[in-house]
């Protein structure tokens, strides 16, 4: 059996998970990555996507996360998501809200090219997430 590490998923409103996990797949803003025990300390921002946590007994829990960041240290992995829900609980309303927010953000950015590009990226992330989920 692989080593375990502490995995915590918290959103500002509540703590969603606090388990012993063998590995966690994280949708980083620069690409997905998987954290396992004894991973090198790392801080990465997140893009909207699906986060998969594999518990010690092999159970896989999937969450939909939007924004935030992941902190991987010697003691474990902590994901601070701006909003997060269980994948099963991700209703279409919730996702539509996220899509609208991303669209509104893109519309609001007209003068700043960098901001606009990042808003566009965020919107694309949300869209591809919707495709993955449906």
């Amino acid at each position: 059996m692989a080593d375990v590490m502490k995995f915590e998923l918290v959103s500002p409103e509540r703590k969603l998970a606090s388990i012993e996990a063998t590995m966690v797949q994280i949708p980083g803003s620069e690409g997905d990555f998987t954290a396992m025990a004894n991973h090198t300390p790392n801080v990465s921002t997140l893009r909207p996507g699906i986060l998969r946590a594999v518990a010690q007994n092999g159970d896989i829990t999937e969450y939909v996360v939007f924004g935030g960041f992941a902190e991987i240290s010697e003691t474990g992995t902590t994901v601070l998501a701006e909003s997060a829900v269980l994948k099963a609980e991700a209703t279409s309303e919730f996702l539509d809200g996220a899509l609208k927010e991303a669209e509104a953000r893109l519309e609001a950015q007209t003068d700043n090219a960098i901001e606009k590009a990042s808003a566009e990226l965020a919107l694309n992330d949300v869209k591809s997430l919707l495709v993955q989920l449906s």
Binding site: P12, G28, S29, E30, T40, P41, N42, V43, S44, T45, G67, G68, F69, E71, I72, S73, E74, E82
Partner: peptide, 27 residues
């Protein structure tokens, strides 16, 4: 004392995090 690898760059993370940190404080 822990030194982290930052992804994207340290500044990138900081610019992303500062507004979040302020939101968190307000919250």
């Amino acid at each position: 004392g822990a030194s982290y690898d930052y992804e994207p760059s340290e500044e990138g993370i900081l610019t992303d995090l500062l507004p979040r940190a302020i939101s968190t404080q307000v919250f």
